[in-house]
Measured scan of single mutants.
Amino acid sequence: DKPVLAIQVLGTVKWFNVRNGYGFINRNDTKEDVFVHQTAIKRNNPRKFLRSVGDGETVEFDVVEGEKGAEATNVTGPGGVPVKGSRYAPNR
């Protein structure tokens, strides 16, 4: 398990590439950019086929120490709701 650095952090999605399945979230508290992989998205938009977060979307997440620095995990919308997802992700 990766060491946990912070829990229930709010941030804004800087960018997310649906095809490659990753992007970055900017933390509201430290203004640090945190890597996010599609496997870290815990509550996906049920209408979306692929797990994703949308550019500019506000999300809540935990921060863990990854191999290359801070990574987001347990990604949801604020308060644990499903994320909205990327407009580029296909609908079901």
Rank of each mutant, 00 (worst) to 15 (best):
V53G: 00
V59Y: 00
R92D: 06
Y88K: 09
R51I: 05
F24S: 14
A72S: 02
A89M: 06
D62G: 02
R51Q: 08
R47A: 14
T58H: 10
R47L: 14
E65W: 13
G66W: 01
S52Q: 02
R47Y: 13
D1H: 11
D55C: 14
T39I: 08
V13A: 11
K68E: 06
S86V: 04
A89P: 05
N91Y: 13
G77I: 06
G79E: 09
R51A: 10
R51T: 07
D62S: 08
T12A: 07
S86N: 10
T76R: 09
G69D: 03
R92M: 12
D1N: 15
L50I: 15
T58R: 10
H37L: 03
G85H: 02
V81L: 13
L5F: 09
D62P: 00
G80N: 08
G56F: 04
V75E: 03
L50V: 12
V64I: 13
A70S: 13
T58N: 06
P78Y: 04
N20I: 10
K68M: 09
N26D: 07
I7T: 15
T73F: 14
T58W: 05
V63T: 01
N74H: 06
K84R: 13
N45M: 04
G69P: 01
V81M: 13
V13G: 00
L50E: 08
E71H: 11
F49T: 15
T76Y: 01
T12I: 07
E71P: 00
S86P: 03
N91C: 13
G66Q: 04
N45Y: 00
E71Q: 14
R92V: 13
V4G: 04
R87S: 11
V75H: 03
E65K: 15
G69I: 01
G85E: 03
K68F: 10
E32D: 08
D62I: 00
V75D: 00
H37Y: 14
P90G: 11
P46T: 07
G66R: 02
G56I: 01
T73E: 12
T76W: 00
A70P: 15
G85F: 04
V59A: 02
R47F: 12
P46G: 06
F35L: 07
F61M: 08
E67M: 13
D55A: 15
F61S: 01
V53D: 00
G79L: 09
P46Y: 05
A70H: 14
K68P: 05
G54I: 05
G21C: 12
A70L: 15
G54S: 10
G80C: 03
E65M: 15
R87N: 12
N74E: 05
E60M: 15
V83Y: 02
N26I: 15
E67T: 14
E57M: 02
T76N: 03
D29V: 08
V75R: 00
G54P: 02
I25F: 10
K48I: 00
N20K: 14
N74F: 00
E57D: 03
G54H: 08
P90L: 09
V53Y: 04
A89N: 06
L50D: 04
G77L: 06
A89W: 05
G23C: 08
D62V: 01
E65R: 15
V63N: 00
G54T: 07
L50K: 12
T58D: 07
G85K: 00
N45T: 05
R51S: 11
E71T: 09
R47P: 03
F49H: 13
Y88G: 06
R87F: 10
V81Q: 14
N44D: 07
A89F: 05
Y88R: 09
E65D: 13
G66E: 00
G69Q: 02
Y22S: 11
G85T: 02
N45W: 03
I41N: 06
K84G: 08
F61L: 02
Q8H: 11
N45D: 09
S52K: 02
G79K: 11
N74L: 01
R51F: 05
V75G: 03
V18I: 10
P82M: 06
F49D: 11
S52P: 04
A72C: 08
K84C: 10
P90Q: 10
Y88A: 06
T39N: 09
V81R: 15
